[in-house]
Simulated assay, not measured.
Amino acid sequence: MKHLIYALLATGAIALPAGAALKDGDNAPAFTAKASLAGKAFDFSLKDALKKGPVVVYFYPSAYTGGCNIQAHAFAVNHEKFAAAGATVVGVSLDSIARLNDFSADPNYCAGKYPVAADADGKIARSYDLAIKQADAGKKDTRGLDIDHGRTERTTFIVTPDGRIAATVGGVSPAANVEKALETVQLLAARARKS
């Protein structure tokens, strides 16, 4: 694992977020949450997803906001590349499941390609040691609707099937966040093929 982390650092595949306390090699907190895929709610379990391979757990501030729209679309466009590397993608935000049902099905964003999970009370974000900011009064989303929930920092964790964090990506643009996550899962897949 150390060799992989050094290789990722050398290639610039990891950018650490300012406030994330969880580090590469730490155990990723397991969670279950109400999630939405293509507008349909279901119960997502990280433990179950890890049985299929690595999981990209990406935290984002809010559905239907500028950077989050870009990031969601980039994950959707690259979904097949993540799948080819054996990785599952799940987005996590403090949005309600109702907002996520719309966002997950929206062809301009998640496009029904991967699930987004509701962390309305921030419990999952806090378990990953991410900062939560309170809602800004009067803030609207790109549809003109009120954003009435807090938000967390944009940070992505790549979790290996053994439940450990292989890489943390943060402090970069939404599109670069997706690119770096994809580079990481492709390196993990290449390493697995060599073993």
Rank of each mutant, 00 (worst) to 15 (best):
A167F: 08
G144A: 03
D136P: 00
R164W: 03
D148W: 02
P174I: 05
A118G: 08
R164K: 15
T152V: 05
D129E: 13
G144N: 08
D162K: 01
H149W: 05
L187M: 15
A176H: 05
K139C: 04
V159G: 05
D136W: 01
I158F: 02
K140Y: 07
V169N: 07
T155D: 11
D146Q: 10
N177R: 00
I147F: 03
V159R: 02
R143A: 12
A137V: 00
T168A: 11
K139D: 12
T160E: 14
R143T: 10
L188P: 11
P115N: 12
A176S: 14
L182G: 13
I124N: 10
A137W: 01
T152M: 04
I165N: 05
P174Q: 09
T168V: 15
A135D: 14
A135F: 06
A135R: 09
V172C: 11
V116F: 07
A125I: 01
G163L: 11
T156G: 11
G138Y: 02
E179T: 13
T152C: 10
A111Q: 09
E153H: 00
K133M: 14
R151K: 12
L187V: 11
G150E: 12
H149L: 08
A181M: 04
G163E: 13
A176K: 10
T160G: 08
D129C: 05
V169D: 11
D141E: 12
K123N: 14
S127C: 07
A125R: 06
D119V: 00
D119H: 02
L182Q: 06
G171P: 11
L188G: 04
R143K: 15
P161Q: 12
D121C: 04
